[in-house]
Amino acid sequence: PKVYVVGGGPGDPELLTVKGARLLGEARSVLYTGSLFPEEALKRLAPKAYLLDSKGMTLEEIVRALAEEAGKGGVVVRLHSGDPGLYGTLLEEKEALEALGIGVEVVPGVTAAFALAARAGLSLTAPEVAQAVAFTRLGVRTPVPEGQDPKSLAAKGLTLAIYLSGMHPKRLSRELLEAGLAPDTPVLFGHKVGQAGEEVGLTDLRGLAGLPARDTTVFLVGEALRAKRVRSRLYDPDFQHRFRR
């Protein structure tokens, strides 16, 4: 028996990988999180599948349901929003299923930060401005390891992709300002990226404090978001490499 753990992307069916879409189309059963993935869209993507909504389940109940479905044969999909390996339950589910003798194959997905940057036509990195990106979140109900929260990472000059913090825009703004970022540091925000009701906007740390508190909002913060007239050395006529001398 086998379970496919598929990254469903931010919600737009066209942002599914080809493999993910194929598996959903072939699926006999799909376990998904109804609070994050629209059921109507899923019915179109997986027309033959028995759909199970996991939003009210515990980990043990999820694993039990997946194991039962895998035992019946056919394609069984555990659908995660975004990418399964980022702020999800991939590790717990995979470990528990493998302990039961059930194989697990992971199919990556487009995470909300990448979809948000693409929607705005912006880059997360820029030559000589920012060459690193950190995925992070505020510690709210669950803690963040020391030195890995937005405030600690802000001073390094990299681009921050901040998840699971949409209910606390004022706190996020305050902590980033306390870290030494300039008040006019660009902030790209996306609410329900790739879904009905999507809202995408560009503001700064001052404007961040005035945004409404909403779940399913991701923030991108950093100078790369307003970089202009930058040029990669790779394509400079004077930059030689093995394909151009």
Results as ranks from 00 to 15, higher is better:
D12A: 08
T58Y: 05
V104S: 03
V76R: 03
K43H: 14
V106W: 00
R226H: 12
A46Y: 05
P150L: 04
V75F: 04
L23H: 08
A182I: 07
F189W: 15
V230E: 09
K170H: 03
A224T: 10
L23D: 11
L23S: 00
G147T: 04
L234E: 09
Y4E: 06
D184V: 09
L16P: 07
A117G: 06
E69M: 11
G74N: 05
R206I: 14
P186A: 10
A46E: 08
R226K: 13
G201N: 12
P237M: 05
H241Q: 10
L205Y: 06
A196E: 15
E223W: 14
L97A: 03
P10T: 09
G74M: 08
V3F: 01
V77M: 05
A120W: 11
S123I: 11
M167Y: 07
Y235P: 01
K2I: 00
D83Y: 12
H168F: 08
L181Q: 05
V76F: 00
L208S: 05
E60P: 02
I162A: 01
G8W: 00
Q195D: 02
L153G: 04
A224G: 12
V140C: 10
V144A: 09
V110I: 13
L79N: 04
E40S: 13
A67D: 04
A41E: 12
G157Q: 13
K156W: 03
G88N: 07
L158N: 03
V187L: 14
L122T: 08
